[in-house]
Write a protein that binds this DNA or RNA. Structure first.
Lengths: 347, 347
DNA sequence: TTGTATGCGTTATCAT
DNA sequence: ATGATAACGCATACAA
């Protein structure tokens, strides 16, 4: 009768339960639980016996079952596109920080599609995750599901309605301009056309660029701006970059809204026969692993990715654990990293 | 007394349960469950009422609780380094395929560290995941935990003891050699020094290279080989590549063991003043997103990543669901994609 | 200090 | 066709 386990053929059926451990150690399952919870009220010799039984049976508490009585130690991470190096790196760091705190990470990729985002978030909510960390701005459909019962933290993005931890974008591009001005550049451009699905990031970075230019007493020509344009197809970026870089009165330096764009620009410059940094200086933003490579060695505004990952995890856990309704948002300082794509203007 | 819920302050406390839905619809929780499970034995009007209650309360079944009675629809994905574009892309595709089948993905990054791998795998096992998908070869410590009760599938890697789904590495590099030979190259080199933590991948790719060379009646000079070397520090790759590319009797074409290495080689060639493909042809392996970029446009051996992701998920689910002890491994065909880093030799 | 009893949210079994 | 009830594995309040 009571051999229900042996009858089934599914996997995990053989996994020992807390009762198996209790029997093996000759104690009650409560005692086993107490030992595992680190309760001090357990006599040492009994503790030993229990631990021995745990080791011998290779017992691992059923996290799902445990999560019905305790805060589940699982975080949901929502990311638009893992193929984006910045997001992938950040996701890895988030998982790492979560693991340090003994939290697991449930991954959900949305591909930037609103409908898929809603489905993934719903799934995450079904898992009763302790908190959600968004690495991409919550799209319309997904937001609706977030009613405040599950804490949400935005990592490296800023959007209204949620606490976030992100770099000071405006300050970053401002410092990029300062760097270029310090090198003697006056005709400085700004490129962000590829960032049209992340306007929340594009805007402050452009704002910082403008502030920097104004602060230096410089004006920026309209033809030196390449910003998101609804009418343009997404596929002709490279062509637009070539045209941009090929114009007669082209800038001597360009601030790109992120590293990926800076790399595209680098390629477009090469394609047009320009040498970087001699004919054109380029500054990126993010400091993805690629930018550190020898072959690229991109001057860029670094985001403190470790601090962002750590902070996002801390914020999410704090919001889930404590009764803090809305944790404070955090703005972190960027850091300009000068490599080999910026120099004095040729003229 | 029975207002246990209101007393606590943790999150999720307000999440409606199946009992709430039952009350709201005026039926028993069994009926609600039956409706949600798609049982046909429920009268249509009742079904409607239940669904209405579900929608109104925004009820979402507690997946953790469900997993105590059913196969948990969660897959564990173990990846060494998400900062590696190939792994990140593959992980994203795996998550996608899993989501299509209504499975969730628990992410674990090991950083290639054996000890961390063991801890992460243990955590995944604690979650009672239906199956594990490794995107990196299981390191020593992690293997020990895998006793066969939880199905394991290796994606894009081959290792003994586990079913895998991967590309035919040898055939890939063989085709790369054939392509170069067809262009008229005779002095062809092979570079894989950066792949020393993935010997299971390096070896068959080198084997295919050798086979291709032999098949074409060509010999390969020892100085044209740059393979893993325990004694070399990991940091001087680029320097080694420059030396390799700068040697007098350098090859006219090189097969790189993966795209990342091909890109480094590209940089080293540029640094040495060589033009690609005029002075040097380069073939990569993997076809990561980066390789498709205009600026790089790398000729490469493509892995069928979609098929690998789909197959890995299918295999894992099948192994968990059916009572197939060890599913069949699958070897997929690579596809050479000719772009702009290969051409006829200059001489 | 240890054991007993109860509840968590769900599915599954069995009456009705 | 529907509902009462017993698991599932664990933590916890409480009794011993």
């Amino acid at each position: 009768m009571n051999r229900t386990r042996a009858a089934s053929g599914r996997s995990h059926e053989g996994a020992p339960t807390i009762i198996d451990v209790a029997r093996h150690a000759g104690v009650s399952k409560s005692t086993v639980s107490n030992v595992l919870q680190g309760k001090t009220s357990v006599a040492e010799p009994i503790r030993q016996k229990v631990m021995a039984a745990v080791a011998e049976l290779d017992y691992r508490p059923h996290i799902g079952a445990r999560s019905m009585r305790q805060q589940p130690r699982v975080l949901g991470v929502v990311v638009g596109d893992l193929a984006n190096p910045f997001h992938a790196e950040l996701a890895a760091k988030v998982e790492n920080e979560a693991a340090k705190r003994d939290y697991s990470v449930l991954l959900a990729t949305t591909g930037g599609v609103g409908q898929r985002e809603a489905a993934r978030v719903s799934s995450l909510l079904g898992h009763r995750v302790a908190g959600l960390i968004f690495l991409s701005a919550p799209h319309g459909n997904g937001r609706l599901l977030l009613d405040g019962s599950t804490p949400v933290v935005l990592a490296s993005i800023v959007a209204p309605g949620f606490p976030w931890i992100a770099v000071d974008d405006a300050r970053g591009t401002r410092e990029a301009v300062d760097h270029l001005v310090g090198l003697g550049h006056a005709r400085i451009g700004f490129v962000s056309a590829m960032l049209d699905d992340e306007l929340a990031t594009e805007r402050p970075r452009f704002k910082g660029f403008s502030q920097g230019m104004r602060g230096a007493g410089l004006t920026v020509a309209g033809s030196h701006l390449l910003r998101p344009d609804r009418r343009a197809a997404r596929t002709d970026w490279f062509e637009r970059l070539r045209v941009y870089i090929g114009q007669r009165e082209r800038p001597t330096a360009v601030v790109a809204a992120n590293d990926l764009m800076a790399l595209e620009l680098l390629a477009a410059a090469e394609a047009e026969g320009l040498r970087v940094p001699h004919d054109l200086s380029i500054v990126g933003f993010d400091n993805i692993a690629l930018a550190r490579w020898e072959r690229v060695s991109l001057t860029t505004v670094a985001q403190p990715m470790d601090a962002i990952a750590r902070g996002a995890v801390d914020l999410a856990i704090a919001a889930a654990t404590d009764d803090v309704p809305v944790p404070q948002s955090v703005r972190l300082d960027p850091q300009l990293i000068v490599r080999r794509t910026t120099a004095h203007p040729a003229s």
